[in-house]
């Protein structure tokens, strides 16, 4: 399935304090987070972003705090995928866990500019820049991560395994190698 949208382009080290400032963390309600998303970096973002649009940035996107409000705010804003040269690790796992698609692709991130039109195929990792007429391919997600995403996020993944885990009460963890099994 491919998605088309416009690029909102940012530089290196976009931190979670600018994605959603702490002064707005007294609520985790979607509309509230969307209203203030990127406010300290790009005050026009919240009013101009449309469903399907992409956030494209350079290295270390999402560094700083572990607040899940950051990927939640982007998702609530309608952002369909974040493309970056690299991601800070907590942001990466939070996005996977809540089902916000991410693609790591330095070439595509560097090539894109604000306002350009991209077509992204999450399945293949293909990123086509329709404005420039070029295409790049992001590295695929590891199978275990794809499994979480396919389940609809970590909550659904955990939910699906709950009966099995309850049956194993007393040994509430799995052995290595059993990761992708449903137990």
């Amino acid at each position: 399935m491919s998605i088309k949208g416009r690029v909102f382009k940012y530089a290196d080290n976009v931190d979670t304090d600018v994605i959603i400032p702490a002064r707005y963390l007294s609520s985790s309600e979607s509309a509230h987070l969307a209203r203030h998303c990127m406010e300290d970096l790009d005050p026009g973002f919240a009013t101009s972003v449309r469903p399907g649009d992409f956030v494209v940035a350079l290295a270390n996107f999402g560094c700083g705090s572990s607040r899940e409000h950051a990927p939640l705010a982007l998702k609530a804003s309608g952002v369909s995928c974040v493309v970056a040269s690299s991601f800070a690790r907590i942001f990466f796992r939070n996005a996977v866990n809540i089902g916000l698609p991410l693609l790591e692709c330095p070439e595509a991130a560097e090539a894109a500019s604000k306002g350009e039109l991209l077509e992204i195929d999450l399945g293949s990792g293909s990123i086509r820049n329709l404005t420039r007429g070029c295409e790049h391919r992001a590295a695929g997600l590891p199978p275990f991560i794809r499994e979480i995403v396919a389940a609809g996020g970590l909550i659904e993944y955990t939910r699906a395994r709950r009966p099995a885990m309850a049956a194993e009460r007393g040994i509430p963890w799995m052995r290595k190698g059993a990761l992708c099994d449903t137990l």
């Binding site: 607040r67 907590i90 970590l154 909550i155 993944y157 955990t158």
Partner: peptide, 30 residues
């Protein structure tokens, strides 16, 4: 909380995660 890495000071492996990780771990211990 991202500063959970503090406890490496005592020779533990500790790391920051997000709220969904926390939720899943509260249920599963994993």
């Amino acid at each position: 909380d991202s500063h959970t890495c503090t406890y490496g000071a005592v020779g533990a492996f500790s790391t920051g995660v997000g709220s969904t990780d926390m939720a899943a771990a509260m249920a599963s211990g994993l």
